[in-house]
Amino acid sequence: MSGIDPMLPFDVALALALVALSWAVLAAADRFAMVVLFIVLGLMVALAWVRLGAPDVALAEAAIGAGVTGALLLATLRHLRGPEAAPAPGPVRWSVAALVAGVTVALGAVVVAVATAPRPEGLAGPVRDNLPASGVEHAVTAVLLNFRAHDTLMEVVVLLIAVIVVWAVDRGLAAAHDPAAGPEADGLGPVQAGYARLALPAAVVLGIYLLWAGAHAPGGAFQAGAVLSAVGIMAVLAGRWRPEAHHRAWARAVFGLGAAVFVLVALGVGLGPGVAYEYPPHLAKPLILAIEAAVTLSIAATLAALFFGREPAPVSRSRGRRP
């Protein structure tokens, strides 16, 4: 044993904190406390990703896992007043839950067995060898947008489905619960307006920087998309911009933009000598950046739309989204 690993106390503390926070979230009586604890948990998990050498994941977890998800939860809290109406599931569900939890705990033993097993060399080697041919320097972006591009396309499709379903489900919701009711009423207009004037342009620049940096450093489409969606949400919350009904067609176009560009590029290169998704070496970088830009725009619009939930209804003074 080459001496105690200096990070051991930090690791143990963080691991315990994570499990304790998870238990706290699930056991919290008060819904508001549950959401706040959840956001804290999201940030701690981001910290854990940094510790385990995964900066990109930490960025994504903080921006999307804690940020956007937290905002969604808080937006939903406004609707959930009063006691819970849902009945507790029956005993059958408890027994099945115990059974399935048992399967998971049994697999704890498997983890220990695996931990002592020889370490597989994983895919680090092939990624390193093929990185130069992938058109980008940063490994994660290369995997996301070139080696496993099919996964990423389907992930963007999942987001697209989410916004279609949310718009279909929320159609009938009364505008009364519109979270973006605008701040003027509580006399905080100037504060928010001031902040917006200062922070939003900076955030847009930051988002674009994140997108660009993705090629050679941690960053990329998803993280940039999350930041830009935050800009969109703040812009509407601060009343700087109000989406109207005629924006709906544009919004649908932007939602589909990311997936459309991705598909057209994947099929386009497939027409040539290579197979689908096989970007020609010299064109790889521009193609990837084009895809990333389109995907970022789509993600920003989609996440903002998910926050506001409903289509911009044409009649009443309701709120919509769009950066």
Partner: peptide
């Protein structure tokens, strides 16, 4: 601002925290 609207104290019960105060001002969580 939220605290001021709720009479200077952080509302105890969760219900009162999220429901609209009587002054009709929408609260932004």
């Amino acid at each position: 601002a939220f605290v001021r609207r709720h009479g200077g104290q952080w509302p105890e019960t969760e219900a009162s925290a999220t429901e609209m105060p009587d002054t009709g001002t929408p609260e932004v969580g």
